[in-house]
Design a protein around this nucleic acid. Structure first.
Length: 857
RNA sequence: GCGGGCGUGGCGGAACUGGUAGACGCGCUGGAUUCAAAAUCCAGUUCUGGUGACAGAGUGUCGGUUCGAUUCCGACCGCCCGCACCA
């Protein structure tokens, strides 16, 4: 009923009607359009945009509620707030749906978006919907293709060979999640690692900058910065060569040249060029390599696999001893992508090398001995020693500390001309090619005459074809009858389009910049990004701690290099929220059951409407596979959006996992009703703005409670401690509810108005309706945030604990500025203290002002 | 396997920079109101012993630093996240 009449004093708060009314009212007044051209400070609040899977789940509800609270809070504090929403719309699920349900991925995706947009709108989010876009909109990916061409021009894009998971039966490339126990998820055939020529972004050209930039991200969680730091994996080491028995030299990289005298083998990656060469003449080696390639490309799988090796028969000469030969093996745990793809193995001081040496009965000689241990007797069992210590069994390195030994070994190798000290990074270049039909086409053309040629900018966007056939093997784009055929942009002759599409991480690496001006004719408009970026508060799941955030940081630097932005770091503030969990239920036959299918009686769970008991399992992340899901839509239908929002903010700290319970939701619903009652049932309030006279006694107590709540909630919301803000709101509501009947009306009004404004960002519909009931014609959404009076926040009496030998024996009440001697005296006079001292004289009395007294007896 | 995190009553959690452990909510118990139920209101609720005042124990486990440790350090146990083609 937009524009209708708001009815006062309903006995019970009708959330459904109220929410509909206020959502329409916000819409009508354009309350959440992004303010521009103003002298006020800006605040860009962004939540990680969703994949349009088909429905909003609790994780979304939690994420978007938090962002919405910040957006509304900052708006009330006088910021220009940008709070947009969009869709991360390319990706595998649409292809799976297309294959399984014979639907068009585009239609499927946009239908999902429509459903989810409607669900999000029910939550009453303060979002500027005029800026919405989906990454599968040609209007978006057209600009992404332009960025790709600019990056190519700037030398940030190149083509190279890379491994993929190859399903030999389906003749298709598989994603890691489509490889289950080394087999293709559809065909069941053992997966092979295969090389393809693919596109890369040169993210490693920013390795050092991406690492150094982490130190500037003060409002990022420490754990995320640490994870990124480890991911980039900067290490100082030595790159040097072994002379091989066949006259060749083999380059290896090591961060531990100090352990060279503990070496017992040299190992090559199965993908090392030398391995491939040797395998041509050694059928057994070729078979071994093929076996290694069955692991797929996932690093986890490779590292978890049993350590296997194959002796090539070649020997490597120890660089410090021409008479010392080490066997050269091919080992499945040596990664081609790191260092040189070849290592020397020192089993005593590296766990993987040790596992390998034990299996193949190779020598394990400790060369670093922890301080305090005897070099003659120190041995290594099943656990490699990686700690500090001094060198032993190492000739000229003996007695040196690890760092000194590293330096000495490196110096000698360098002097011999066999190697150089280098900095190595674990970070690899970003492989962006995907052999998938539902992604952003890579704007390149292959011409027999001219080679690989960039598409013309005037031809952008290179659109996906309208009809994609999914019942083919391999990449449907490559099999499309006409799509790939085009004219070469250079010579005009017949040529073929690149049929690879971009990794969907590319789509999400710059969407935050596009939101600042979604109408711009270029990828971004300079004025808009200069004004709005960086994002002031970014919120999303911890699962994105590394890849998405690192790629976005790279993209921002690449966009700086190509002249689009002036900054390096896209997200000034980052918050990673926890997951939403729920109990799991299984029937007698072991099958999972939906929470909807069970009911609880006397602490047991039964199949709804029966006496069949249900097995209650532990609380786990809500997932369709375990059926432990509760749909936000259902909860909104029953209780309304404010209830689910309040639940999402209550109790659990936002970075931790949250458990959904029906009882908790009912508690939130009761609190919604309680606030409504507090506001509607308080009689005799003076008109808004009425001044209050001198206030003392119960009135003063209520004023103190009000201003303490304002101060605490303000701090808590600014620090994203939503659960604490919620607790403070409960305290204020309790104080108002239990206030003495004689308290002045103007004091009550102040308390109620504060309560309503404080819940404004969290339960916006209820707040608007209470605000109207309190006689205001304005919107809470347009009302400034309340200010706490510092004089009322300060306490006039302090309660201090008094301990004897660290055990609490009583409390004393003192003035905040009480002298230490007076505090001491009243502490020693306490009954409990006298009893605990039992006549003994205190040795020492520690008084920590305003906090505690500890008497040491 | 490697990297990162978390662990406090029956449950979710609070405790700022090492200073009264359990704020606030859920649940439960008792009472008021009601023909009854829902809703609401009042009281209680870490555990053990005690009618009680009170005493003892207690923040995953074990040990350490300190006048004092949920907080700092070491080892261990359990759970969770990421590992480059899920998003």
């Amino acid at each position: 009923m937009p524009g209708g009449v708001w009815r006062f004093g309903m006995a019970r708060y009708n959330a459904k009607e109220s929410e509909k009314y206020w959502q329409a009212e916000w819409d009508r007044r354009g309350a959440f359009r992004t303010p521009e051209d103003s002298a006020r400070p800006k605040c860009y609040v962004l939540e990680m945009f969703p994949y349009p899977s088909g429905s909003i789940h609790m994780g979304h509800a939690r994420n978007y509620t938090m962002g919405d609270v910040i957006a509304r809070f900052r708006r009330a504090q006088g910021f220009n707030v940008l709070h947009p929403m969009g869709w991360d719309a390319f990706g595998l699920p649409a292809e799976n749906a297309a294959r399984e349900k014979k639907v068009d991925p585009r239609e499927w995706t946009y239908a999902n978006i429509a459903t989810m947009r409607a669900q999000l709108k029910l939550m009453g989010l303060a979002i500027d919907w005029e800026r919405e876009f989906a990454t599968c909109d040609p209007e978006y990916y057209r600009h992404q293709q332009k960025l790709f061409l600019d990056f190519f021009e700037a030398g940030l894009v190149y083509r190279s060979e890379a491994d993929v998971n190859w399903d030999p039966v389906d003749q298709t490339v598989l994603a890691n999640e489509q490889v289950i126990d080394g087999k293709g998820w559809r065909s069941g055939a053992p997966v092979e690692r295969r090389k393809l020529s693919q596109w890369f972004f040169r993210i490693t050209s920013f390795s050092e900058e991406l690492l150094a930039g982490l130190d500037t991200l003060e409002r990022w969680p420490e754990k995320v910065r640490l994870m990124q730091k480890n991911w980039i994996g900067k290490s100082e080491g030595l790159r040097f060569s072994f002379d091989l028995s066949d006259g060749r030299a083999l380059d290896v990289f090591s961060t531990r040249p100090d352990t060279l005298f503990g070496a017992s083998f040299v190992a090559l990656s199965p993908d090392h060029p030398l391995t491939e060469e040797l395998a041509k003449k050694d059928a057994k080696l070729a078979a071994f390599v093929a076996e290694c390639r069955r692991t797929g490309t996932a690093e986890e799988a490779i590292e978890k696999a049993e350590k296997l090796g194959y002796d090539t028969g070649l020997k490597a000469v120890h660089p410090f001893d021409a008479g010392w030969e080490l066997p050269v093996v091919v080992a499945n745990f040596v990664l081609m992508g790191y260092g040189t793809g070849a290592i020397f193995g020192c089993p005593a001081h590296d766990q993987r090398d040790l596992d390998f040496a034990r299996k193949y009965k190779l020598p394990v000689l400790p060369v670093v001995v922890p301080d305090g241990a005897d070099p003659k007797t120190f041995t290594v069992g099943d656990e490699a020693y990686t700690g500090p210590g001094h060198l032993a069994n190492s000739r000229f390195l003996d007695g040196l500390e690890v760092d000194a030994a590293k330096a000495e070994a490196a110096k000698r190798i360098e002097a011999m001309g066999k190697g150089t000290r280098t900095t190595n990074y674990r970070l690899r270049d970003w492989l962006v090619s995907r052999q998938r039909p539902w992604g952003c086409p890579i704007p390149m053309v292959h011409c027999a005459k001219c080679g690989v040629v960039p598409a013309r900018e005037s031809d952008l966007p290179i659109r996906l074809p309208d009809k994609i056939a999914f019942d083919v093997r391999g990449n449907p784009l490559a099999h499309h009858p006409s799509w790939k055929h085009t004219a070469c942009p250079a010579c005009g002759g017949p040529a073929e389009r690149e049929t690879d599409t971009l990794d969907t991480f590319v789509d999400s690496s710059w969407y935050f910049a596009r939101f600042t001006d979604t109408k711009a004719e270029t990828p971004v408009s300079t004025d808009a990004v200069d004004y709005w970026l960086p994002v002031d508060q970014y919120i999303g799941g911890i699962e994105h701690a590394i890849l998405h955030l690192l790629y976005s940081r790279f993209f921002t630097r690449a966009m700086k290099k190509t002249g689009y932005v002036k900054l390096d770091e896209p997200f000034a503030g980052l918050f990673t929220q926890g997951m939403v969990c729920h109990e799991t239920y299984r029937g007698q036959n072991g099958g999972w059951l939906l929470p909807d299918e069970i009911e609880k009686r006397d602490n047991k769970a039964y199949l709804k409407g029966s006496d069949t008991e249900v097995i209650v399992g532990p609380s786990e992340k809500m997932s369709k596979s375990r059926k432990n899901v509760v749909a936000p839509e259902t909860i909104i239908e029953i209780f309304g959006a404010d209830t689910i929002r309040w639940f999402m903010l209550s109790d659990t700290p936002p970075e931790r996992d949250l458990e959904w319970t029906d009882e908790g939701a009912e508690g939130c619903w009761r609190f919604v009703q309680r606030i409504h009652r507090l506001v509607t049932e308080t009689v005799g309030l003076p008109a808004p703005g009425t001044a209050m006279g001198d206030v003392s006694g119960a009135g003063l107590e209520l004023r103190r409670a009000t201003h303490r709540a304002i101060a605490a909630v303000t701090d808590d919301l600014a620090a994203l401690r939503f659960n604490r803000a919620v607790a403070r709101v409960y305290e204020l509501a309790n104080a108002i509810g239990s206030a003495d009947a004689g308290v002045d009306g103007a004091v009550r009004r102040e308390a109620l108005e504060a309560l309503v404004l404080l819940i404004g960002p969290m339960m916006p519909h209820l707040a608007e309706s209470c605000w109207r009931t309190l006689g205001h014609q304005t919107l809470v959404a347009e009302t400034p945030w309340p200010k706490a009076d510092a004089a009322l926040v300060r306490a006039d009496v302090l309660k201090m604990g008094v301990q004897v030998n660290g055990k609490l024996r009583g409390t004393i009440e003192v003035a905040p500025d009480a002298a230490e001697d007076a505090v001491k005296a009243s502490a020693l006079a306490l009954d409990g203290v006298v009893r605990a001292l039992d006549g003994k004289t205190p040795k020492r009395v520690i008084v920590v002002p305003r906090r505690i007294v500890n008497i040491v007896a």
